[in-house]
Design a protein around this nucleic acid. Structure first.
Length: 298
DNA sequence: AATGAGAACAACCGCAACTTG
DNA sequence: ACAAGTTGCGGTTGTTCTCAT
């Protein structure tokens, strides 16, 4: 009972997209919106697999795609986020407005992985100082992530909507116990159960819904110093996942992207040509503030 | 000018997570 | 609760581009 393929692949176009295919896809999505990828090709009159359409739209046709070279700020951010998250390209891309996971993945594989292998900041600086020297005489690496010796927070375990933090982060108390969590998601989450257990045994702990937490709150907090070493594995993974959510929460990202005029918020990008740089710098500073050692989990 | 190597980019594939009935 | 369908992600591959020889 093998799974039915996403589409009948017989006779479908493959390979590079033609201009009219791009136009047809863009027109259809602009009119009808994204989604229903399986049926989209047929409705859009495309002889393509839905997956292919989705990929083409997300990586190439989407109007908010930023094309062009990766800036030094973005470069720096990619390195730091990769150090933190590993090959979680979609999450990394989520912090780089206009960049796609595929683009970042390619960029990493062709540029940064080599730099990572070299492992010295000096090499990093040398390369960055010479923007024209992107050519590298080292051979392409096989698997940059696996070879890297950096500390990577793996977040694969499960999704978690709650996190436990020390209650001395008093400013967050009022955010606790709100619930805009999808029904059932908590009850089945080992994180949640663990949090509940720890709620009863550790009075100083609270759990809360991350979607109610603002990035500035995160930045001003010292959540990363939470005593995760004392947690059991479930708790630990929960915390990691939550940390990831703190960084990558789509809701927050949306707000960040949408932005407002509050220039005091370092995470609000400007709309001018250098707007992204400011936001990236702010995020980079944040990443700097959480030094690598503080992510080491025993 | 020809050509080969390496870099850059686009797209495909398989799998796992998620959703739905 | 379960199976089937859908979507998204990450790894990998293929193609095109650039540059040195």
């Amino acid at each position: 009972m093998g799974r039915k393929p996403c589409c009948d692949k017989e006779g479908l176009n493959k390979g590079a997209w033609s201009a009219w295919e791009d136009k047809a896809l863009a027109n259809y999505i602009n009119t009808h919106g994204e989604g229903k990828w399986r049926d989209l090709p047929q409705r859009a009159g495309l002889n393509r697999c839905g997956k292919s359409c989705r990929l083409r739209w997300l990586n190439y046709l989407r109007p908010d795609i930023k094309r062009g070279n990766i800036s030094p700020e973005e470069d720096e951010l990619i390195v730091r986020l990769h150090k933190l998250l590993g090959n979680r390209w979609s999450l990394i891309a989520g912090r780089l407005p206009g960049r796609t996971d595929n683009e970042i993945k390619n960029y990493w594989n062709t540029n940064l992985s080599k730099r990572s292998e070299q492992g010295s900041d000096k090499a990093h600086q040398d390369q960055r100082s010479d923007s024209t020297s992107s050519k590298d005489d080292t051979k392409k690496s096989n698997n940059p992530a696996s070879k890297s010796s950096v500390q990577v927070v793996r977040t694969k375990a499960f999704k978690c909507r709650k996190v436990v933090i020390p209650s001395h982060l008093d400013g967050h108390d009022q955010m606790l116990e709100r619930s805009n969590v999808a029904p059932g998601s908590d009850s089945e989450s080992p994180c949640s159960s663990a949090a509940q257990e720890h709620d009863s045994s550790f009075g100083f702990l609270r759990d809360f819904d991350i979607n109610d937490m603002l990035i500035p709150d995160v930045l001003s907090s010292d959540f990363h110093q939470a005593q995760i070493n004392d947690c059991d594995q479930d708790m630990l993974e929960c915390g990691i996942t939550k940390i990831e959510d703190l960084l990558m929460g789509e809701a927050r990202l949306g707000e960040w992207r949408a932005g407002d005029d509050d220039q005091d918020d370092p995470l609000q990008p400007n709309d001018d040509d250098h707007g992204d740089v400011g936001g990236l710098n702010a995020l980079s500073s944040f990443l700097n503030s959480i030094d690598d050692d503080q992510w080491i989990i025993s």
